[in-house]
């Protein structure tokens, strides 16, 4: 069958590829080219707010003039202005640390899920998935109530007597980490669980028979076997966390912003579309390696004949 489809592809088969391809080219690929183009433009008080504008009526001369007016000034600004550099640095640092925290929390949970009796696993799977599909915005909002100065967390801490005075949670980095770990935990747990679920348990038996203690067997046998899932989960979390906007905006403080907030501010508050575009292009460049890895992982698991 595949040989047949190779030699002669019918129109129907071509359409199956062509229709989604054209949609994605028009609404995902072309927009990125436009972002790149506008990142080379300058801010202007106009509608739309950037120059140069491309004018088809002026023909080749207009095209020449258009290209001569493009400049890399926005990128020069990104590199020279400490605000942008620290914003990128902070986003990457937060993404690294929170991905590590997610791994540390996600691995034991995924391991426990995989070790649970078979008939529970479907239910456990559903229980982990359910919060993920419960609106992202709502889950961040839920923490706003809990982390307030007179919120439930401080009420509980004061009641138990761990603290004498209510500590500040909201508008701190701690709140950002709590928000990120909370919202991304299912992304980390599920890929690791998927790998561990297929694990050959006789390996652990062999380790036990040879006198290896359980914690050591976990470290020497289970962890290496969970590695593909852990890598997939880490990529799945890391990429969107770097560009996160809602969590730092609602839970974080007014200090250094994450890069998603910087982009947002440039676009919505300063209306500097070229600067926002340059921020987006550099962010994309920083994420290109994890993005390629992600595509590779997905393609290997879900495709045939590629």
């Amino acid at each position: 069958m595949s040989a047949r489809s190779h030699s002669k592809r019918s129109w129907g088969q071509r359409l199956v590829i062509l229709i989604p391809y054209l949609w994605l080219a028009a609404f995902f690929l072309v927009p990125f080219l436009i972002v790149f183009k506008i990142s080379l433009s300058q801010f202007a008080t106009a509608q739309p707010p950037y120059l140069p504008q491309f004018d088809l009526d002026e023909g080749l001369a207009g095209l020449k003039e258009f290209f001569s007016e493009l400049s890399s000034a926005n990128y020069a600004r990104l590199v020279s202005d400490w605000l942008y550099l620290s914003s990128y640095g902070r986003s990457l640092a937060i993404a690294f640390v929170s991905t590590a925290m997610l791994l540390a929390l996600g691995l034991p949970i995924a391991y426990a899920m995989a070790r649970a009796p078979r008939r529970w696993q479907g239910v456990l799977f559903l229980l982990i998935v359910l919060p993920f599909w419960t609106s992202f915005l709502i889950r961040v909002y839920a923490w706003m109530t809990i982390l307030q100065r007179d919120g439930l967390l401080n009420q509980a801490l004061l009641a138990i007597g761990i603290v004498d005075a209510p500590p500040v949670w909201i508008s701190t980095d701690a709140a950002i980490f709590i928000g990120i770990v909370y919202t991304y935990l299912p992304f980390m747990v599920l890929p690791i669980y998927a790998t561990l679920e297929r694990m050959d348990e006789t390996l652990l038996e062999a380790a036990a028979d040879l006198g290896c203690p359980r914690w050591k067997a976990f470290w020497l046998v289970t962890v290496p076997l969970a590695l593909p899932g852990a890598i997939a989960g880490s990529i799945l979390c890391f990429i969107p966390i770097v560009g996160e906007f809602v969590i730092p905006d609602l839970l974080g403080g007014s200090g250094t912003m994450m890069i998603g907030q910087t982009l947002w501010l440039e676009f919505f508050n300063n209306r500097d579309w070229p600067a926002a575009s340059a921020v987006a292009v550099v962010l994309l460049a920083l994420l290109i390696v994890p993005l390629i890895l992600f595509q590779h992982v997905q393609a290997r698991r879900l495709e045939q004949g590629g």
């Binding site: 972002v35 969107p240 560009g243 906007f245 947002w264 926002a276 962010l283």
Partner: peptide, 8 residues
């Protein structure tokens, strides 16, 4: 990241 897709 949604900010990139949205802007684009």
């Amino acid at each position: 990241p949604e900010v990139i897709t949205g802007l684009a």
